[in-house]
């Protein structure tokens, strides 16, 4: 099952040239770029592993692309995303985040129903590999 999160989630996977262009846009906005990866793409998992430190004063997208290349080489079967952090006062949070790598065989998100008091039903989702 194709798991989608963040920006461009309705589009097909971005090519490297497209990723590079998006990063270029982020750098133009003075956003810091971080690369993160995980094997647990559950939507409630916000804690992805950081690939190195966030990059604060780059001028060109090539620097990020090098890190992304290294991360893909080390974790070819992980989900990798790029986060763009805006440090402007009053915002100070991630403004853009998109997936740039996904495993060949993706897990599925499975809906789990549980009966609760008074015939109520509770729903939760878990990843099935």
């Amino acid at each position: 099952m194709r798991i989608t999160q963040g920006c461009f989630s309705f589009l097909p996977d971005l090519t490297d040239a497209q990723i590079s262009a998006q990063i270029e846009y982020c750098l133009q906005q003075d956003w810091a770029i971080g690369v993160e990866f995980t094997n647990d793409p559950h939507p409630r998992n916000t804690y992805w592993d950081m690939w190195g430190n966030p990059m604060f004063d780059l001028r060109d997208a090539k620097g990020v692309m090098m890190e992304l290349e290294d991360c893909r080489k080390a974790h070819p079967d992980a989900y990798i995303r790029i986060n763009a952090f805006d440090d402007e006062r009053g915002i100070e949070s991630v403004k853009m985040s998109f997936i740039v790598n996904r495993p060949v065989a993706e897990p599925t998100i499975h809906l789990q129903r549980v009966d609760f008091v008074d015939r109520a039903q509770k729903y939760s989702w878990d990843m099935r590999y």
């Binding site: 990059m55 004063d57 780059l58 001028r59 060109d60 090539k62 620097g63 990020v64 090098m66 890190e67």
Partner: peptide, 14 residues
């Protein structure tokens, strides 16, 4: 290695 790479990343495009 990380230190050199950090500098190289900043210098990319310049």
């Amino acid at each position: 290695a990380p230190k050199t790479k950090e500098v190289l990343k900043k210098a990319m495009g310049g």
